[in-house]
Design a protein around this nucleic acid. Structure first.
Lengths: 334, 334
DNA sequence: CTGTTAGCGCTTTCAG
DNA sequence: CTGAAAGCGCTAACAG
């Protein structure tokens, strides 16, 4: 514990604690002189405000909690980075709470969890309705959902059904032998269902255009390149009719298919067409056509909305639900 | 914010706030009757203690911070899980702070970071000396280091130099054509140097036994199977003299080498010998001989020491530095 | 623009 | 074993 309190600073700077408080909270109405004296005292004493005291009186900690299913994937790296950058500008800090296991979730179900000791919660890609009783996060703090919808909370999301539809529209112009490469989320409470929705949207367009498509046309991979590559190799070897079109429900799978195709001497963009999803930066290098999710923009917006809620800039009743449009990025693969 | 305070509970249970406080803090000296009344009131009111108020007066939050360079690798998954299980038993909760970027680190350099608003800090696999000025974490809270050493803090670690030596001793009994597969950590402040130490220890034994070994015998891979497999394939194709021995500085690379060897029709344990590091559970399935790090045991111990420090069970001066021995797990690969 | 002061909700003496 | 009361360090309202 820092033994140095606001009183010490006040004494040293020869002002009142009120003035010090105002200064450390960035209020404008302070004389330059006092500002200087106090800043100097803070510096010399190495004073750092006690967050507990602050939290106790104002209920604010200048921090927000980010809940994500995992980290260290392109998607969440970008998301966390964007959120953090926005927060930093406003003097906020984030704590990341990866929902690694069911037993970790149990803690998060409790109102007392440290998770809720921040000024607001930003949750991404998690099924609130399944996770929390009545779909309600056990806190009175502002909550915003990213990459998912809910009837209770502000949310910023993209329509995954729509993504599938767009992908289908691109591919049916190229061929009618169409396959899907997707990820089967383990069926548990964490299942977000995004991959499934993408496939559903995709099927919808195919059906509309009476293109033959059955469960047999759907192949699965784990979320790692090695696995995707192997699977793609084995699938491609069996393909009878070219050109063949692939809907890769995430860019990573598209990458695997490209690698496999090249390995087998097939020409991407001619023998094999591929549409990925996410719009990862590296898709450019490999020429993958992809349906981009504007992750950075979405994250920024979500963060700003959350911050505005914290400052009660909106009336309680006005729930914000913002849907982003997927962006088609055409490259050589389709 | 929970509008319900300890006063409400006291009123409802018809006791004083002191009594309620004692009960929620698990003190023994309370009559059964009061215990019951209060528990009932707490239940009915849905009371949850205000952490800020608690922290303000006692300085304790019943939470600890885990700092790791990343998550979602076998190593950190196991580490975090073990720590969390131990904490749970003691009524503690953890916040995970992955050190994803330099700019995140900057926040952690500040005393005021939310990171230090817990009762203690457990840091793993990070070079404290490079990261923090004078090698000191900017907090007065107890700090324990896992998987690394330091002169200031309690630490629980394993000697990576020793790991390399053990691996070498196993391999030189099999062959004198010896190669190393390792990971080059990007040279930045996060660089822990563990891989390098493993290789150094390895070289030491080889030199001692006058076995030819130069930088040309060292190959690099990224920490993913796909990459390791490809690299192993290209290396194995060029090998002139069999049997060949590989020191894989992490099990993942050992996996890649096994896959590559099989792919090329070589027999693991006869044409190709491999020793991995970490002792991941899945090494059993693939028959990889490995030098095991007892991650779970180390994590448990570290957590318990940290908790003991929080309860001031040790004198301030007695720094604990606990070195674990690597465990050799022999399987078919060497 | 600044100083004074009343709490925020809790733990922790201290009497009884 | 329990109740009363004194703060923990800070913010915010108020008076000046």
């Amino acid at each position: 514990m820092s033994r140095i309190t606001i009183k010490d600073v006040a004494k040293k700077a020869k002002v009142s604690v009120g003035t010090v408080s105002r200064i450390i909270n960035g209020e404008k109405n302070v004389t330059k002189e006092n500002l200087q004296k106090v800043s100097k005292a803070i510096e010399e004493l190495g004073y750092v405000p006690n967050t507990y005291a602050r939290g106790l009186v104002s209920g604010k900690t200048k921090s927000i909690s980010i809940i994500v299913p995992m980290i260290r994937t392109d998607f969440y790296d970008r998301l966390i980075n964007s959120v953090d950058k926005t927060l930093l500008r406003k003097g906020y800090e984030s704590s990341i709470f990866p929902l690694l296991s069911e037993y970790r979730l149990k803690k998060f179900l409790e109102k007392s969890s440290i998770l809720y000791h921040s000024d607001g919660i930003l949750m991404s890609s998690l099924p609130v309705n399944k996770l929390f009783k009545e779909g309600k996060v056990p806190t009175d703090k502002p909550v915003i959902l990213l990459d998912m919808e809910s009837e209770y909370y502000d949310c910023v999301y993209i329509d995954n059904y729509e993504i599938g539809k767009i992908a289908a529209k691109i591919l049916i112009e190229k061929t009618d032998n169409i396959l899907v490469f997707t990820f089967i989320e383990p069926e548990n409470i964490f299942t977000s269902g995004v991959f499934e929705r993408r496939v559903k949207g995709f099927e919808n367009i195919l059906n509309q255009n009476s293109i033959h498509f059955s469960k047999k046309n759907i192949f699965h991979s784990e979320l790692n390149l090695h696995y995707a590559l192997n699977e793609a190799l084995s699938v491609l070897k069996k393909v009878q009719k070219f050109p063949v079109g692939f809907f890769a429900t995430t860019d990573l799978f598209g990458y695997g298919i490209i690698l496999a195709a090249k390995n087998l001497g097939m020409e991407v963009g001619k023998d094999v067409f591929i549409v990925g999803v996410d719009g990862q930066p590296w898709t450019e290098d490999i020429g993958l056509t992809t349906i981009k999710q504007p992750i950075e923009e979405m994250s920024d917006l979500a963060t700003n909305i959350l911050l505005d809620r914290i400052y009660s800039k909106y009336s309680v009743s006005s729930r914000k639900s913002i849907k982003f449009d997927p962006i088609v990025v055409r490259r050589t693969s389709a």
